[in-house]
Design a protein around this nucleic acid. Structure first.
Lengths: 136, 136
DNA sequence: CTTTCTGCAAACTCTTTGCACTCGT
DNA sequence: ACGAGTGCAAAGAGTTTGCAGAAAG
């Protein structure tokens, strides 16, 4: 049952490592296909799933949109542009500065959280800025 | 083009108003069907969409799970049990106590946010508590 | 060699939609 | 009566899976 280091897996890993735009499975496939033209979408899904389960990638599903994949696994939040759909990483933790202890006292075990901010990104408001990660 | 007050729409509204568990479309249909046995899933979807667009309901899509509908439209966050899938409303705002002005200065217009906490609920940790909304 | 992985295509799940008919207004 | 809404069934979109052959170890 040991995991094999196939070229497809390596390629998916590389795409995710280099991607800054939270690509969808179809986009990952497209990029992998530049080097492995016969790669199938099924294989891409299988390898993405593998990486997610191994903790080497994160699946980001904003609202009901298609799944996007993020090579960043450190704890960070997202800004989602409601006009162009771009997903930007927010470096600083904005996480629940909630008093989680209150929940815990009520029997809830909080393991993690997910926070997304919605609005318009610089490119879409006209305030052009180089695209990329934004640190708060 | 005015919206008609059909019994199906009224029933969907009522189900959402009385529901405390963020039912899926299929669950809404099931409950509506208790009074209107021939209601179709398509109609339920159409009416749910109508309510969401009218601002009378909220579609909650946690990660990649099926859409759930919430009659609550005030601003609140969610706790998602990773074991049983239950979604609980969190009354207090835990929103981004982020300095949104920093984002704004960079050209991001933040309109709203969505926060979900993930973990195990009281029923699933063994620490039984009456099910329902939890205020922090 | 053995076992996992791949490509392909079909299956699946959730959601949306076209159509003829129904029912509010 | 007019036309929005309905039930049904079929179509879509995204994702998963079964299988025979390919390839990693």
């Amino acid at each position: 049952m040991r995991t094999r280091r196939t070229r497809q897996l390596a390629a998916v890993e590389a795409v995710l490592r280099d991607a800054r735009d939270h690509p969808t499975a179809a986009q990952v496939r497209e990029r992998v296909a530049r080097h492995l033209p016969r790669v199938s979408l099924g294989t891409v899904y299988r390898n993405l799933e593998k990486l997610v389960r191994a903790g080497a990638a994160v699946r980001v599903r904003v609202d009901g949109e298609v799944a996007r994949y993020d090579g960043r696994v450190d704890d960070h939040d997202h800004f989602v542009c409601e006009r162009c759909g771009a997903v930007t990483d927010l470096l600083a933790p904005h996480g629940p500065e909630v008093d989680v202890s209150i929940l815990r006292r009520r029997g809830y075990a909080v393991r993690t959280h997910r926070l997304a901010l919605f609005g318009a990104c610089p490119g879409c408001t006209g305030t052009a800025l180089p695209f990329g990660r934004v640190a708060l």
